[in-house]
Simulated scan of single mutants.
Amino acid sequence: MNEGAHHAPDAPHGSLREYLIGFFLSVVLTAIPFWLVMARPLAPGPTAVLIVAFAVVQIIVHMVYFLHMNARSEGGWTMIALIFTLIVVAIALAGSMWVMHHLDTNMMPMPHEVSRQP
């Protein structure tokens, strides 16, 4: 079977070195949050923030080392699609949080109203 039949000639191909770097980074970026949860060296708030930060970095590592996403791949269209997706997700998350906040603020009884009820 022809090698060119599976991939476009200008498609990025990862080398073994790149895959090993990506794998090593993925393992480290998984092991550190695991240790943070198991050893509990920090309070829950900072631990949660660090876990989210490590998750974001791991997403970037996977996109770069395993999906080979960069500004040059496919004429930049994959990066444009990624940016559009991130914007849509951010709008959906922000809107959901806004709606939930306003539901909580406007629909839950106030503490002094609860104590007056028989």
Results as ranks from 00 to 15, higher is better:
Val49Ile: 15
Gly75Gln: 11
Phe34Asp: 04
Ile32Cys: 03
Leu86Ser: 09
Pro33Val: 00
Ile60Pro: 00
Phe84Pro: 00
Val37Phe: 13
Met38Gly: 01
Thr47Glu: 03
Asn70Pro: 00
Ala71Leu: 12
Pro44Ser: 04
Trp77Ser: 11
Ala43Phe: 06
Val49Asn: 03
Val57Glu: 10
Leu67Val: 08
Val89Lys: 04
Ala71Ile: 12
Pro41Trp: 02
Ser73His: 14
Pro46Ile: 07
Val61Ala: 02
Val27Tyr: 02
Ile51Lys: 01
Tyr65His: 15
Ala43Arg: 12
Phe34Asn: 07
Ser73Val: 15
Met79Pro: 00
Val52Leu: 15
Gly75Asp: 11
Val61Arg: 02
Pro41Ser: 09
Ala92His: 02
Ala71Pro: 01
Pro46Phe: 11
Ala31Asn: 00
Leu67Asn: 11
Thr78Asn: 13
Ala39Pro: 01
Arg72Met: 09
Pro44Thr: 03
Asn70Val: 03
Ala90Thr: 09
Phe84Gln: 09
Val89His: 05
Gly76Cys: 05
Gly75Met: 04
Val27Met: 03
Val28Pro: 01
Ala90Lys: 05
Val49Thr: 08
Val88Asp: 12
Thr47Lys: 01
Leu86Ala: 10
Ala71Met: 07
Ala71Gln: 14
His62Ile: 09
Asn70Cys: 04
Ile59Ala: 15
Gln58Lys: 09
Leu86Asn: 10
Met79Tyr: 13
Tyr65Thr: 02
Thr30Phe: 12
Leu29Gln: 04
Arg40Ser: 13
Ile60Tyr: 08
Ala48Lys: 11
Ile80Gln: 15
His62Tyr: 10
Ile51Gln: 03
Ser73Ala: 14
Phe54Ile: 00
Leu50Tyr: 07
Arg72Ser: 09
Phe66Asn: 04
Arg72His: 10
Ala48Gln: 13
Ala31Val: 05
His62Leu: 12
Leu42Glu: 06
